[in-house]
Design a protein around this nucleic acid. Structure first.
Lengths: 344, 344
DNA sequence: TTGAAAGCGCTAACAG
DNA sequence: CTGTTAGCGCTTTCAA
């Protein structure tokens, strides 16, 4: 059986009008007006026949697919899309909802090692793309060359005139460290992902460092623990932190993602170090898992759902031609106090 | 700028052949053969011009979109898709990867209250749909009427000739309860989501009940705690379980989802009941969060990634016409022992 | 081994 | 207010 069996031609026949009329009426084309009877007969016919528009045909002729693509970081081997970090799930959920409310659908696709996303974007005729995180410079050039509406989320690449949505990650790192400093902590470790040039983790690290320096607190490379943003790496780094606990004098840690913080809890605990008794922890993001651990995480909270919504609105703005200039949207963040920090 | 600027017509001109030839060569149509020179010139031209196929046009003419849809349960108000349960993220990640390896893309869309998914499926010309979980009977009728390749995952609706992928949930429930029974527990509570007719939770509950009855262990309605499958509800039910802990004599609980089990931990703990000291817990699924809590969850493990892969292969099988008869694929499960259970 | 041509379902000039 | 018609980019008979 074929899909979309009923075509506007059938409606036209049923209603005794032309396909043009049907098209205009079904699309509520503002420039065209019709007699109420014509409108009714077309609508009735469409209804009666169970008409379902064919997006492929629409897309072909209008060059608008009403689909937007979301690019999510993948595991190294270009295999699965990284959904184990709840941040992406939360984000995607919001993106899907916002897009749907605007008549758009989300195409989700990773890329194989031999391709770049722009290929699938063009093949699918995507109307716009939301790109999460950092990618290689060459990709940005390619994307720009493709002239496709793009919004970069959590990306600090500049010298490009892309629209971006992000938070002030440097400020976030600063807030986290400052918060700990204000609680009397002096030796504050930082646990984070790979510090890619211009990535969010780098910014957060700078913020942390800045706060330490301002406070005249010790800062040295030994306070920095970096690995992958994953639970497993959190465990590893927690283990390392626990190992050097006695001599390092560390009393607090700022972790750049909830999922790592959970791992850190585990690594610390296994190493006989307690949270917050021995070490206080401030995390980042405030995904739903931040509340499920014990003690619940004190975090620098960002509104992931708002981020998704904002990103969609931004691409749609470009697509519809409303937004033409380069815009950089910075979403607010704040500290949410829970149980993972004690004063010193 | 338009997408897909270069058309096969351009390639034809560049290579000095007809569009037919280009189409055949680019698609490697098996029934057509060409001289090596022709093939080379076409390929070179395509390469040189940077040809990118236009899926909308392809879809229009071939009636194949090379997209498959995934239907994921939504929150009640038909808003966001439920990504807070890591099960869905894990599943989707695997589905996306498998589909991509087969030249398909995933369209993810929830539905608004006023529509059913089949509408978007037909509008988008989806080649097939993977439906996760339970939906109302009427929807199945509608889907069948639409004659679209469908695979139902985790669904016990019968009397329909849909292909399905699932695990033996009844057996899973039985295994969980039996495991606890073998460890000497006699009063075993069951914490689960809404027991929808023919849903996985109902099956798991039946299995649990069966094991209890076989063992001559107490079974009564008071041992059943049901709510939503969410962390929050786990907390609530954990609280209730803790409240009645003294008089109920419950020493173990079988929880039907990891995310609920985590909530249960919290509710129990807040109520002064320890795991596994006071109450042993067996969970279900073994998503990545099963390992992050303390004590790590002993679970009935199912391979979510395999489930996703299998579901995709099943739809593709139907789409390509290979699979025509109704098939019911049951994936294996097993107990993974971790720290949340002690003997009695 | 190759090409001409008829559409797939729809939109949007343009003409009335 | 309504209809005719020319494509959008591609596949696929059918003929050569």
């Amino acid at each position: 059986m074929r899909s979309g069996r009923v075509r506007i031609k059938d409606i036209a026949a049923e209603a005794g009008v032309s396909v043009t009329t049907v098209s205009y009426i079904l699309n509520k084309t503002p420039t065209q007006t019709f007699s109420p009877e014509t409108v009714k007969s077309v609508l009735d016919a469409a209804n009666k026949l169970g008409y379902v528009p064919n997006m492929a045909a629409k897309a072909l002729v209008s060059n608008r697919s009403h689909m937007i693509g979301v690019v999510i970081p993948q595991t190294e081997q270009h295999r699965e899309v990284m959904f184990s970090n709840p941040f992406y799930g939360d984000f995607l959920s919001s993106v899907e909802y916002t897009a749907r409310q605007n008549g758009y659908h989300i195409l989700i696709s990773g890329t194989n090692a031999d391709q770049t996303y722009i290929g699938v974007a063009r093949t699918r005729g995507l109307d716009g793309i939301i790109i999460l995180g950092m990618y290689m410079e060459q990709h940005y050039d390619e994307i720009k060359k493709a002239g496709m509406p793009v919004v970069l989320v959590d990306c600090y690449v500049d010298g490009h005139d892309f629209n971006t949505v992000k938070i002030d990650d440097l400020q976030g790192g600063y807030m986290a460290a400052k918060y700990l400093l204000d609680k009397g902590h002096r030796r504050i470790a930082h646990v984070t992902g790979r510090l890619k040039e211009r990535g969010v983790n780098q910014q957060r690290m700078y913020g942390w460092k800045k706060a330490l320096e301002e406070a005249g607190a010790a800062y040295d490379r030994s306070l920095l623990y970096d690995g992958e943003v994953s639970y497993e790496y959190g465990v590893i780094l927690g283990g390392r932190l626990a190992e050097s606990f006695r001599e390092s004098g560390v009393t607090a840690a700022f972790v750049s993602a909830d999922i790592m913080a959970l791992g850190l809890y585990k690594g610390l605990k296994d190493g006989g170090v307690s949270v917050p008794g021995d070490i206080s922890v401030v995390s980042f993001d405030d995904t739903w898992i931040a509340g499920i651990c014990d003690p619940a995480l004190t975090v620098v909270r960002q509104d992931v759902a708002l981020k998704g919504k904002t990103a969609v609105e931004a691409v749609l703005g470009i697509i519809d031609g409303g937004i033409t200039e380069k815009r950089e949207i910075i979403l607010p963040i704040r500290i949410v106090e829970r149980g993972s920090v004690i004063g010193k």
